[in-house]
Design a protein around this nucleic acid. Sequence first.
DNA 1: AAACCGATTCACT
DNA 2: GTGAATCGGTTTC
Length: 212
Amino acid sequence: MSGDAGRLFTRAELALDPVDLAQLLLGSVLEATGPDGTVAVRLVEVEAYRGEDDPASHCYRGRTPRNAVMWGPAGHLYVYFVYGMHFCANIVGSHDGVAGAVLLRAGEVVSGLDVVRRRRPAARGTGELAKGPAILTSVLRIDREQNGVDLTDPASPVRLHVGERVDPERIRTGPRVGVAMAMDTPWRFWIDGSPAVSTYRRGGKRRVRPAS
DNA sequence: AAACCGATTCACT
DNA sequence: GTGAATCGGTTTC
């Protein structure tokens, strides 16, 4: 797969169970073109959210206008608005009719550094310019307008490229950040050693209390 | 029609 | 470590 680094992923390659897709996405490169320039980020931290049996997923309670893209086709972008001020981006990994997606939590800027500096003049050090899911979208200038775009289309404003091979030994896994439910489900994946990887915080409220 | 609350970030103690 | 900012999607009355 190193030989192919730089080419776009195909839809078929991304039509996976989100848990498998998450690991495939580590090291891949997401590139977004806006009116003020193009920025590319190497993904180093992601989380899988999948369907019916995942209470932390937006698709847990079925299809709604907001989460519709999570049902496919794969390889499209799912963007949602949170906390009244931020956007988070996911790559859809729909598979066998099961809805799901991979949240993009962090990346390293690999091109367009000048554009990023203009967008975020007060940002942190070079290696951690895209640390955190809402910072990642702000660096790439992804918002609700890009919801549903096809990442495998060369004409799309946001595209997903195959990256350099990642050493499997560097891949780590653990519970997802900020989720209050399914804390035993280790569906967060990251590349060990990247300065962009978030520090773990557990979700705010415990949902199910043991009934006495 | 209204309440509830989140896959967060940033500033401050 | 704690808390505020802020608002649309979803649920509930």
